[in-house]
């Protein structure tokens, strides 16, 4: 895994500030920039660089697909090491797979499936099982306990 990159204080301030509520006004970047005492051009350029370098995976609205009538689940696969790349490609090819992580364990691939309509999760799981020949362990959340922490950059 690559080492964490270096960010200066302003980058960190930008990341921390933008984890909260982004103003829904005509010139939102100008407003955020004024909180940070910089120009909107500089904020936009920094944001662009943070996205480009991968420090931010995205910037924008975070949608809750369940509220739209869709479903979400966490699923796992036990992938033989020699097939890891091939299986990764198959799993990632589904647009319903939003996140996918490699983890050190016999259960070594963990991915989140989000769908727009109920019932679609089962179809995606079945399709992945058919395509990979592996059993997908479906672990939907049965209960969510309080979520706290926001990471400090």
């Amino acid at each position: 895994m690559s080492k964490p990159a270096e960010y200066d204080t302003l980058d960190r301030q930008i990341i921390n500030t933008l984890q909260g509520g982004f103003p829904i006004v005509d010139k939102p970047y100008a407003q955020v920039a004024s909180w940070l005492n910089i120009s909107s051009e500089e904020l936009i350029e920094r944001l662009d660089n943070l996205l480009e370098s991968g420090a931010l995976t995205r910037f924008g609205p975070l949608f809750n697909s369940q509220r739209m009538g869709g479903e979400v689940t966490l699923a796992a696969l036990c992938v033989p090491s020699e097939r890891y790349d091939e299986v990764t490609e198959i799993v990632n090819s589904y647009y319903q797979v939003a996140h996918n992580y490699q983890r050190e364990h016999a259960f070594n691939m963990w991915f989140v499936i989000t769908t727009e309509t109920p019932g679609e999760i089962k179809k995606v799981i079945r399709a992945i099982e058919n395509e990979t020949g592996l059993k997908v362990y479906d672990c939907p959340k049965e209960k969510e306990y309080f979520i706290g922490l926001r990471l400090q950059a």
């Binding site: 895994m1 690559s2 964490p4 990159a5 960010y7 930008i14 990341i15 933008l18 984890q19 909260g20 509520g21 982004f22 829904i24 944001l47 943070l50 370098s53 991968g54 420090a55 931010l56 995976t57 995205r58 910037f59 924008g60 609205p61 975070l62 949608f63 809750n64 509220r67 739209m68 990471l151 950059a153």
Partner: peptide
């Protein structure tokens, strides 16, 4: 339907 509008940091990079 929208949880928030904001930045999603990459943990590793931080």
């Amino acid at each position: 339907i929208i949880r928030r509008i904001g930045a999603v940091p990459n943990h590793y990079h931080l």
